[in-house]
Amino acid sequence: MLGFALIVIVLLSLLQAIRFYKDGKWSINYIVLVGLIVVAALATTLALSAIPDTVQTAAFTLFGTIAGYLATRKIPTASSGGANDTAGVSTSPPE
């Protein structure tokens, strides 16, 4: 599993490098995908290891929390304000 994760991360890095070379833009989706792949690889390694169930339960809870955050995170688009997006919080003074 770790070998597969490494291959996928290398391929994603190659695709990101090509995109950056062509457009000069960095994609936040790349970081999210790499994070999810790393969490999946670590969870698989943990599942195959011989450690107590109580430790595995705590670690799987942490991995699930991280994966859930990465998967449901709202990624700003160019039409919604891009990198300067304030996540719906108004920055203008009240009238």
Rank of each mutant, 00 (worst) to 15 (best):
M1R: 08
M1P: 09
I7L: 13
I7H: 09
I9L: 10
I9Y: 05
I9K: 03
I9G: 00
I9W: 04
V10L: 07
V10W: 12
L11E: 11
L11M: 13
L12E: 08
L12G: 04
S13C: 15
S13E: 04
L14K: 09
L14M: 11
L15E: 14
L15T: 08
Q16G: 13
Q16D: 08
Q16S: 13
A17D: 00
A17S: 04
A17M: 13
I18E: 07
I18N: 12
R19I: 08
Y21W: 15
K22M: 06
D23H: 12
D23N: 12
G24A: 14
G24I: 04
G24Q: 09
K25R: 15
W26H: 05
W26Y: 10
W26T: 06
S27W: 00
I28N: 08
I28S: 15
I28P: 10
N29D: 05
N29I: 12
Y30Q: 06
I31D: 12
V32R: 15
V32F: 13
V34D: 05
V34T: 10
G35C: 06
L36K: 07
L36Q: 03
L36N: 01
I37R: 02
V38S: 02
V38P: 02
A41W: 06
A41H: 05
A41Y: 00
A41V: 01
L42G: 04
L42V: 11
T44R: 08
T44N: 13
T45C: 06
L46W: 02
A47N: 02
A47W: 07
A47E: 01
L48M: 15
L48A: 11
L48E: 05
S49N: 12
S49R: 08
I51G: 01
P52V: 06
P52L: 02
D53I: 12
D53K: 10
T54S: 07
V55Q: 10
V55G: 01
V55M: 15
V55H: 09
V55N: 09
Q56F: 07
T57S: 11
T57G: 00
T57A: 14
T57E: 14
A58S: 12
A58H: 15
A59T: 00
A59G: 00
F60D: 01
F60G: 03
F63H: 10
F63N: 01
T65Y: 07
T65F: 13
I66Q: 01
I66T: 05
I66V: 15
I66R: 05
A67H: 03
A67M: 06
G68S: 04
Y69K: 15
L70A: 00
L70D: 02
T72Y: 14
R73K: 14
R73A: 13
R73I: 14
R73H: 10
K74G: 00
K74V: 06
K74D: 08
I75A: 11
P76K: 07
P76T: 02
P76C: 01
T77L: 11
S79K: 12
G81I: 06
G82F: 06
A83I: 12
A83P: 05
A83M: 11
A83S: 14
A83V: 12
N84H: 00
N84D: 04
A87W: 14
G88Y: 05
G88E: 02
G88T: 08
S90M: 05
T91N: 10
T91M: 13
T91C: 02
S92D: 12
S92L: 13
P94E: 06
P94C: 03
P94M: 07
E95V: 04
E95M: 02
E95I: 07
